[in-house]
Nucleic acid binder design. Sequence first.
DNA 1: ATGCACTCTCCGTTTACGTCA
DNA 2: TTTGACGTAAACGGAGAGTGC
Length: 185
Amino acid sequence: MEGEEEACNTRLCLGIGCGGYGGSEERGHGEGKPPVRLLMLFPTHLDTSKEEEDGNRNDHGKNGTWKKLKLTKEQSSMLEDIFKERNNLTMMEKQALAKKLNLSPRQVEVWFQNRRARTKSKQMEFHRAFLKKQCERLSNENLQLKKEMQELMKLIELSSPFYSHELPKATATVLALCPSCKKIA
DNA sequence: ATGCACTCTCCGTTTACGTCA
DNA sequence: TTTGACGTAAACGGAGAGTGC
């Protein structure tokens, strides 16, 4: 890892020479007590020796910027397959999956986080489109009903010349009131 | 009961990278 | 061939809920 002596501001970074916070086992419950739960918040670029071997781990490059990891097709498809079944994993499952995929548990965790966000945003998009369609449909229906009502009013006026002009007008006003906002549509 | 330390998830943002005009 | 805009996805950092001591 280049720039080992440079301070690393990555949250909870355990990397060699990094000036990060250190994991919970370091800062944890003191007196050698184990943490309440096993450490989950691994930094994404934890395993620095291995990443040089396989070139598949994230790393901080020169001047402190991190290099973006591109997951392989195999990694992505396996993550996708598992996500299809369950969109949330337990700590142990994450660790096992991370080991299997040669990633850090933190990377698996982040991937699931982002994947859930993508799913949610697609759902919202779908929902918006659905509501938009509904709105258009209701607007058209409303327009159509207004037309029908006007035609009916004409028919009433034509068919019964003795019919009061005041009543139908009042009825029309009531019918044109929006049921939710109580305003005349 | 209360406060503190910690874990975990979510969310918005940042950043690296690929694509395309 | 270069370059700038843009989209995508990995990663970050903070907030808040939950838990144990």
